[in-house]
Simulated scan of single mutants.
Amino acid sequence: MQSLEIGYILSLAAASATLLGWVVMRIKSNPSERLIAYIFLFVALAMILVDLIQLIPTALDSGLAQTQVFIFLIAGFSLVLLISKLMSIKVGSGPSSSALVIALALSLHNLPEGSAPIAASLVDLPTGVTTALLMALHNIPEGIAITASAILAGYGHLKSLLLTLTATLAEMLGATAIFLSDDLFANIQNAGALLSFVAGIMLAICVKELLPYSFKTLRPSSR
């Protein structure tokens, strides 16, 4: 089996871990807002660490200049802000809008994220396995975040599952697209640009949605 095929299987497995987040929240019925706030805080910290430890350094190692990485980072960040603005206009502010923004933004960032284990496997198979494991561990709290935001919005189990499934399938779709067009990585800088863009999306989700809710809920005055 070639590295491309192994990387594709690893990407699908990592993407499937997102659904485990829904399972976790399904087992823990009716979680309190404080528990959800702690979950959001954990997810935000995990996403920021993945940005700083994996995505941005890898983008820099691809040969992109720091300025180029920053531009793609800002582009991803701005996309989430635009989505948030459009959703607030269409749906209004509040938990429902936040749930849709989180689900949509995570789905968008999962599209290119699905390429990460494949790209890493093409460079070095053990690195591909490690990357897939990190993505899986990262995807579980993502699934929890989507489900938790859906619960806050008053959505039932089926709708929260559909939102989580959307993010899961988005990552699988991204992996499939790369699998069918592996020549995208003929220029490694393309992968670096993609990873920078993903990092910007993840950072914006943390700053715009996850951290504000966590701090608002967990501050002493809210007890």
Rank of each mutant, 00 (worst) to 15 (best):
S3N: 15
G7R: 04
Y8V: 05
I9A: 01
L10K: 08
L10F: 09
A13S: 12
A15T: 04
G21I: 13
G21A: 11
W22R: 09
W22Y: 13
V24W: 11
M25R: 03
M25V: 12
R26P: 09
K28Y: 09
K28S: 07
S29R: 15
N30R: 04
P31T: 15
R34T: 08
I36N: 04
A37D: 11
F40K: 01
M47C: 06
L49I: 14
D51F: 02
D51W: 02
L52G: 09
L55K: 01
T58G: 07
G63R: 04
L64C: 04
L64S: 05
A65P: 01
Q66L: 07
Q68M: 13
I71W: 01
F72W: 14
L73F: 02
I74S: 00
I74K: 00
I74E: 01
A75Q: 02
S78E: 07
S78I: 13
L79W: 06
L79R: 00
L81V: 13
S84W: 00
S84N: 15
K85G: 13
L86T: 05
I89S: 11
K90S: 11
K90I: 15
K90C: 03
V91I: 02
V91S: 01
S93H: 13
S97Q: 12
S97T: 08
A99D: 12
A99V: 14
I102V: 15
A103V: 02
L104T: 15
L106Q: 03
L108S: 07
L108F: 00
H109C: 10
H109P: 08
N110K: 04
N110C: 10
L111K: 01
P112A: 01
S115F: 03
A116V: 15
I118T: 03
A119T: 15
A119Y: 12
A119C: 03
L122A: 02
L125E: 03
T127S: 10
A132L: 06
A132Y: 00
L137V: 15
H138G: 06
G143Q: 02
G143W: 00
G143I: 14
A145E: 08
T147I: 03
S149V: 06
I151P: 00
L152P: 00
A153C: 04
G154M: 12
G156K: 05
S160F: 11
L161A: 08
T164D: 03
A167G: 14
T168A: 03
E171T: 08
M172K: 07
A175F: 02
A175W: 02
A177P: 05
L180E: 03
L184N: 08
N187D: 15
N190P: 12
A191D: 03
G192E: 12
G192L: 02
S196M: 08
F197R: 05
V198F: 08
V198M: 09
A199E: 07
I201S: 11
A204Y: 02
I205W: 00
C206D: 10
V207R: 07
V207M: 14
L210S: 09
L211V: 15
P212R: 09
Y213D: 14
Y213V: 15
F215D: 12
P220F: 08
S222Y: 10
R223S: 13
